[in-house]
Design a protein around this nucleic acid. Structure first.
Length: 747
DNA sequence: TTTTCATCTATGTAGACAGCATGTC
DNA sequence: CTACATAGATGAAAA
């Protein structure tokens, strides 16, 4: 078998039991779908890889011309797999491509045989009607149980429904779920459930230095401190084991890390290396923040924390330090519970409840199982220990139930209107759905319809969404029988405002005799491609018109602020920054000054958000922004990323509603550049040069160098400001980018 | 006087996908 | 607004 040959060439000579089982059940039959529920680290990915190779190469290891998709839930994971697959399979002539929000491999994706992507990006690609999609004969979906995720499950469900219609082989890789049969039946897939693990996992409960295992004898943990958890991690570190401690909030993760000191248990070399890491942490940002300092201090003591407030670089240092076994313990939030391959000896779940919109709720068992499942490093640990820590004897029973009971069922989240809005518009704007019958058929094929049987409620929901889309001129419906493929133009009134429909077409999706046809408008099509919620588009359009009315009296900074406020009101910008009690009044006063009268909690939050972006583009130093708005570096980056996307989308919408000659449009165009780097207008020209960002452009500007030409004319000054290495980079880039000869010779 | 311990109160609460066109500190 | 853990403040007792 050629697939197994290739594995052998990659030094995989023996398959693990679940992998064998899947092959025996017919993985290499290209028409057979699979749902595979096996523990993390038991070799799920390899099953996906085997399926990919089976499609892409024929018996003689020649390319078949077919494509396989590898769909993952996280960008970080996509990057990881991309590197891994390239390394392993490019030597066979297989081209591996990566397509995620931040990054597309340079060449057209049609050239690739394996495309690694996220579900949202795949959805977006399908909206752009890429023709290569028809060459896809296999889709491997990692963490397919996320179809039950509140926020993102709907998208996964839609792309799966589409993939089913494409007749591609579907291989779903899943964590343990309560109702795997339901999902596998919907997928028309062979279900494989296996508990096999490469390293044995002992599940246990820890209470007052007593470690009680579900199936093994209890163990008394030696008391070396006043803190139960310290004792538990010291016990592990003394046996050369590492620990992950899962906490329910960022604050708690940091707090937990600060509580312990492992210096006593470190060798001199380790201490030395840790000190170096600690220094490195401080050097990530120009001015280290409180978070940086805290992390740096902890790392010296052999312990770290890990959560979304850390920048990418911080996280990387922590993860690598842990893999190299320098960092002994990481206190983390769910950032580390799924995805990333970061096993440990002992996984400790410190909290079994967490805040949500409905107050304190139980953390889903599935998640706790995933945390616990991180225990056991293949080749390093004789066994792993997955432990729930409890503070109160009363909780013992509950913990036992979590460890031994069944996990939750997963349920379709397609009923959610927000999810439906964006997907129905998407389906109609690509022409996949042209009429009511198409829509009904599509909905009938979804997991939602399969799971709930009765499609009536779904259709009611869907009708409402269609009406919303129609009302806002994102699509048009007609009960006539004629078919028009052309995308409709929008109509505007004398003052150039979009004319919205006041009447609704009446149709009844549930009635097969009721014939209704759908066409997306230009605006709808674009919104679908921009990948934003149609409801956000509604907000954007409304607010843009409002702004247009008053924009003559507003100066430029007021327009900027209004634009930031506008995007902060969209769904995509959520969750917003929380407003603390002591800031509320101040914010309301500032809103009043802006002429904003609606002081609802939501609007105040949106306003706070918008202020932060204003400060960001006004070049307020990062550390001051973080302090002022109570955010952490990682969150600020994330927010800026969101804002950049929404500013772009707002600009595109402005263009379509005939605002493209207004002051608002010009502000949006400039803002697009400014938001990314966080800089004032005067720096825009400099920012366009590669290797020049927020702080370098400011340095140049203040030194009197304010254009590309001036950079090229003042090389000495550049070297003086940035040193030789960076100076060369900047000057070299300028020459290349603008097609001029680089005039200078540096030797 | 300083340190330690117990009690009360105010405070704040996880994560991270998407456009487009190419490279920040 | 949910309901809890935590940090910090306050005050009392011990050193």
């Amino acid at each position: 078998m050629h697939v197994l040959d290739i594995l052998k060439e990659n030094k995989i000579t023996e398959l693990r039991p679940p992998q064998k089982k899947v092959i025996d059940e017919g993985l290499f039959d290209k028409t057979k779908n699979f749902l595979i529920c096996i523990p993390t680290a038991s070799g799920k990915t390899l099953i996906g890889e085997m399926a990919l190779l089976n499609h892409i190469l024929d018996e003689n290891k020649n390319l078949t011309g077919k494509k396989g998709l590898f769909i993952v839930p996280l960008k970080a994971l996509a990057n990881e797999k991309f590197d891994e697959f390239k390394e392993k399979y490019e030597k066979y002539g297989i081209k591996v491509g990566l397509s995620i929000g931040d990054f597309d491999t340079k060449e057209n994706l049609s050239k690739f045989h394996i495309i690694i992507t996220t579900s949202e990006k795949l959805d977006s690609l399908m909206r752009h009607e890429v023709e290569w999609i028809n060459d896809v004969s296999l889709a491997v979906i990692d963490e397919i149980h996320l179809i039950g995720d509140n926020d993102r499950g709907g998208t996964l469900e839609v792309i799966l429904t589409k993939l089913k219609n494409l007749n591609a082989q579907i291989v779903g890789l899943s964590a343990t779920i309560g109702n795997p049969e339901e999902l596998s039946n919907w997928l028309n897939a062979k279900l494989i459930v296996d508990e096999w693990r490469p390293v044995e996992l002992k599940k246990g409960i820890y209470f007052e230095n007593e470690l009680e295992f579900v199936k093994s004898p209890a163990k008394k943990i030696k008391q070396v401190s006043k803190n139960n958890i310290t004792d538990l991690i010291v016990d592990s570190v003394e046996e050369k084991g590492s620990c992950l401690i899962f906490c329910n909030s960022k604050r708690n993760a940091v707090g937990e890390a600060k509580k312990h000191n492992l210096t006593k248990y470190l060798t001199r070399t380790e201490q030395h290396e840790l000190n170096k890491l600690s220094e490195e942490i401080l050097s990530i940002l120009d001015t280290p923040t409180e978070t940086c300092k805290a992390l740096s201090e902890c790392i010296k003591k052999g312990i770290a924390f890990h959560h979304a407030g850390l920048t990418y670089q911080h996280r990387k240092i922590v993860e690598d330090g842990f893999r190299n076994r320098l960092i002994k313990v990481i206190c983390c939030t769910p950032t580390l519970s799924a995805g990333l391959n970061l096993p440990c000896r002992r996984a400790i779940v410190r909290d079994i409840k967490r805040y949500s919109q409905n107050g304190l709720v139980d953390i889903p068992r599935m998640e706790i199982q995933q945390c616990i499942g991180r225990a056991g490093r293949p080749g390093l640990d004789p066994y792993g220990e997955g432990i729930i820590y409890i503070k109160n004897e009363k909780e013992i029973e509950k913990a036992y139930e979590i460890l031994t009971g069944s996990v939750e069922n997963i349920y379709s989240k397609l009923a959610n209107q927000k999810v439906l809005r964006i997907h129905i518009l998407g389906l109609i704007s690509t022409g996949e759905i042209k009429d009511g019958q198409n829509l009904v058929n599509f909905m009938k094929n979804t997991f939602y319809a399969y799971q709930f049987g009765n499609i009536g409620a779904v259709l009611l929901n869907v009708s409402e969404v269609v009406k919303f889309l129609e009302k806002n001129k994102f699509l048009e419906t007609s009960v006539l029988k004629k078919t028009e493929n052309t995308v409709r133009e929008l109509s505007f009134d004398s003052s150039n405002n979009l004319v919205l429909d006041s009447k609704e077409t009446s149709f009844d999706l549930a009635n097969p005799d009721s014939k209704v046809e759908f066409r997306s408008t230009k605006l709808g099509k674009r919104i679908s491609e921009l990948y934003i919620d149609p409801m956000s588009s509604e907000i954007i359009i409304e607010e843009l018109y409002e702004l247009k009315k008053k924009c003559a009296q507003l100066d430029r900074s007021k327009i900027d602020q209004s634009l930031f406020y506008l995007i902060s009101k969209t769904n995509e910008m959520r969750p917003l920054l929380r407003v603390r009690a002591n800031e509320e009044l101040d914010l309301i006063l500032k809103m009043d000054k802006m002429g904003l009268k609606d002081y609802s909690a939501e609007n105040i939050e949106a306003f706070k958000n918008s202020k932060m972006f204003c400060d960001w583009v006004s070049e307020i130093p990062e550390e001051i922004i973080l302090e002022k708005y109570g955010v952490e570096p990682g969150i600020l980056r994330y927010k800026v990323e969101q804002a950049k996307w929404m500013i772009y989308s707002t600009k595109e919408i402005a263009k379509l509603i005939n605002l493209d000659s207004s002051a608002i449009y010009r502000a949006l165009m400039e803002m697009e550049l400014r938001i990314e780097y966080g800089a004032k207008e005067e720096l825009i020209e400099l920012l366009k040069v590669k290797n020049i960002g927020r702080s370098r452009s400011r340095k140049l500007y203040n030194a009197g160098i304010r254009s590309k030409i001036e950079i090229n004319n003042n090389p000495e000054k550049i070297f003086e400001l940035f040193g030789e290495k960076i100076g060369k980079k900047i000057l070299g880039e300028l020459g290349m980018k603008y097609g001029q000869q680089t005039l200078l010779n540096f030797n």
